[in-house]
Every structure is written in structure tokens, then in C-alpha cells.
């Protein structure tokens, strides 16, 4: 590898108290906050501009609250396994790390499968982003926003799963050579994963319940 050994990959910088990777991921998350903030800002603006009769509650529009609740619990559960996998690494238990980390990936997969099931049900009922609700004649912004928000969120989940898979299968070799650095990577992957969970915590009530 032609990259140099740069400082503060493992040891924290004396001024900031964090590693370069951690500062980097938080900067990335700050920009993600602005991305999802823009989406929510758009949501508020569009909803404020619409009369209430054109804006269904999620449940009126045909979203299943039980399924949504289930998926929320799945994602929260995956956050717990994620943080447990990091804690296992910190305690030096690679086996436990693999189990928890694998569970995180699995739960992420379950979330995406449930989401795909929800999408396909909507499609089979003739509900697409462009058409209205519920008789398909009344215009509505609702499903456009629903598909855009959940789609973008699902892309983030997918990205997290792919990165985590890489870390589990190939990245874990680093545990032998540089355990501290590997634990740092898992922490960073965890921060991203928790953020994706955090976004869903807002998406769920906004789309399904309000």
C-alpha cells in the first residue's frame, strides 16, 4: 500500500481527544443530519402548504402500523447487538464479537426484507409514488414522500450492511495485527449504524403515526 502511516489512527489527538477516523465519521454524520434535515424540512413545508384533507395519516393511507412497529424493534435490536459486538471486542472476545456483529447484519437484512414486503404489497395494490390515496384519484404528496424517505433510508441500511459484511469477512483479519485499530473501525461502523437507526426513530412516527 502506498499510503503512509499517518498519526492519530489509533491514538487520540491531544487537542480533540479523538482519533482521525472518529472525527471523520462524526463530520460525515453531521452532513447526514443536514441531508435528512433537508428531507424533514421539505416534509414540513409541503405539509404546511397542504390542507389537512389532502394529507392522510399513515394508517388511513394503508400503512401497517404493526409491521412498522416490528421493523422499529428490529432496527433498535440491531443497534443493541452492534454496541454489544463492540463491547465484546473491547473485552477481547472475538467469538462473541462475530456472533453479535453477525446478528446486526442479520437484523439489518430482516429490516430490508420487511421493507421489501411492504413495498411489494403497496405495488400490488396499485400504489406507487406518483399516484394518490386511497381511491387513487385524490392527489396526495404522501406516498411520494413515503417512498422517497424510506427508499433513501433503506439505501443507507444497505450500505451499512455491505460495509459490515466486509468488516466481518475480510476486515476482521486486522484483529490479529492491530486489534485497537480494528476496534476503532467497529466503533465507527457502529456510529453510522446507530445514526441510521436514529433516523428511523423519527421516520416511523412521522410516516406511520402522524
Amino acid at each position: 500500500m502506498s499510503t503512509l502511516d499517518l498519526p492519530y489512527q489509533v491514538e487520540p489527538h491531544p487537542l480533540t481527544g479523538v482519533t482521525s477516523g472518529k472525527l471523520g465519521i462524526w463530520l460525515f454524520l453531521a452532513s447526514e443530519v443536514m441531508l435528512f434535515g433537508s428531507l424533514f424540512s421539505s416534509y414540513v413545508l409541503l405539509r404546511v402548504g397542504s390542507p389537512p384533507e389532502f394529507w392522510p395519516l399513515g394508517i388511513e393511507a394503508g400503512l401497517s402500523v404493526p409491521i412498522g412497529t416490528f421493523n422499529t424493534l428490529v432496527l433498535i435490536g440491531s443497534s443493541v447487538t452492534m454496541v454489544m459486538s463492540w463491547a465484546s471486542l473491547k473485552m477481547g472476545n472475538l467469538g462473541a464479537f462475530r456472533r453479535y456483529f453477525g446478528a446486526t447484519i442479520g437484523l439489518g437484512g430482516v429490516f430490508l426484507l420487511v421493507k421489501a414486503f411492504e413495498y411489494s404489497t403497496k405495488f400490488s395494490h396499485g400504489i406507487f409514488p406518483a399516484v394518490g390515496w386511497p381511491e387513487l384519484t385524490d392527489p396526495s404528496m404522501f406516498y411520494g414522500l413515503y417512498f422517497t424517505f424510506t427508499g433513501l433510508h433503506a439505501l443507507h441500511v444497505l450500505l451499512g450492511i455491505l460495509v459490515n459484511l466486509w468488516l466481518l469477512i475480510w476486515g476482521a483479519a486486522m484483529w490479529e495485527t492491530a486489534p485497537e485499530r480494528f476496534a476503532g473501525r467497529i466503533e465507527i461502523a457502529g456510529l453510522y449504524w446507530h445514526f441510521v437507526d436514529l433516523v428511523w426513530i423519527f421516520l416511523f412516527p412521522v410516516l406511520y403515526l402522524l
Binding site: 481527544g17 479523538v18 443497534s79 452492534m82 454496541v83 457502529g190 446507530h194 436514529l198 426513530i201
Partner: peptide, 28 residues
């Protein structure tokens, strides 16, 4: 409010913001 409390819990404990360095808090 409930969503904010939940998000706060995730950020504080899972993302360790409660014990995180100041620089991260300033950034946020």
C-alpha cells in the same frame, strides 16, 4: 417528544455522546 427522547437515548448511550469529547459536541 417521544421520538426525541428515543433519539437522545440512542445518541447518548449507543453513540457514547454522553461521555464523548467536547469537539464532537461543538460540531453537533
Amino acid at each position: 417528544v417521544v421520538a426525541t427522547v428515543k433519539a437522545g437515548l440512542v445518541a447518548s448511550y449507543f453513540m457514547h455522546l454522553i461521555s464523548e469529547e467536547k469537539v464532537i459536541l461543538w460540531l453537533l
